[in-house]
Nucleic acid binder design. Structure first.
Lengths: 145, 145
DNA sequence: TTCCTTGCAAACGATTTGCATTGGA
DNA sequence: TCCAATGCAAATCGTTTGCAAGGAA
């Protein structure tokens, strides 16, 4: 995990009296390396099972409550975790319908502005005040195509 | 549920030797009325609990396997079901961060073309062949804003 | 009569929690 | 010393399944 991320996470946790322990550091590092959202089981495997699942889930919960991680469900029954946008940067997801792989992608500035504007207009049309948007692009990855 | 939807669903089920039973019809009707994706528990409540949960889940599974429904997870732990696009039409979702409400929205043709093109380009840039896209717009609804 | 469908209860997988212990500041 | 963090086991929640009874074609 990059040192600046580690420092930011540590500071964020300290703000509520929490600690960036070795276990939590490894969880954040695993997600920093991942390149996309990952399930608890995937993180657990990546860490070579050196953390009990219950502790891993507790770390994930603490990190999510602290705003370090964000989670959502994909198509499967397991929750997927990723670094929050303020750490990872704004991005979207490519979902391979063949192998289930999910990958982060960033839009170039112009495309992002277009999307942002479009989302704001659509929301306003239904009486919503838009604050964010998420795009999932489904298709076949290079290996499955 | 609109008669044409009922007929299409019935025919789709018959194609694999399945039946559109009263229970299944009520499930489809509940989702036709809903205006957005709903969890099994929400559908169950809407049907006044007149169907055991296990039967409801079985109906949902059959309807999804037959391509009548699609399901995905949102931010919560429960799966959400909605009519498949060939019945409901292509659309996106507005998510209220205040009350959790999720609503369908349709883009106008131009916006949809823009989004479609953008998704295709982004996917190609990562070696993916795009076949679909899903946009979730987060914000505050009229009541929560 | 055949096979789909339903209801009930039990099973299941993912995630959470109680409790006692460990360990950092 | 105090409170957060951990490990283990048990509990919980949403969902699925086995099995026997009911019902349509």
């Amino acid at each position: 995990m990059q040192p600046q991320i580690e420092a930011e996470v540590s500071e964020r946790l300290r703000g509520t009296g929490l600690r960036l322990t070795p276990g939590r550091r490894r969880v954040v590092a695993a997600l920093t390396d991942a390149g996309g959202p990952r399930t608890a089981a995937e993180i657990h495997a990546h860490l070579r099972r050196r953390i009990p699942l219950s502790s891993l889930y507790r770390s994930l919960a603490v990190l999510e409550e602290s705003g370090v991680l964000a989670s959502h469900h994909g198509s499967g029954p397991q929750r997927k975790y990723e670094l929050a946008e303020w750490l990872r940067g704004h991005h979207h997801h490519l979902v391979c319908l063949g192998c289930g792989r999910i990958e982060d992608v960033e839009l170039d500035d112009q495309a992002e502005r277009t999307l942002h504007g479009l989302a704001g207009e659509v929301a306003a049309g239904s009486g919503y005040a838009a604050s964010g948007h998420r795009l999932e692009i489904e298709g076949l990855c290079g290996g499955c195509g």
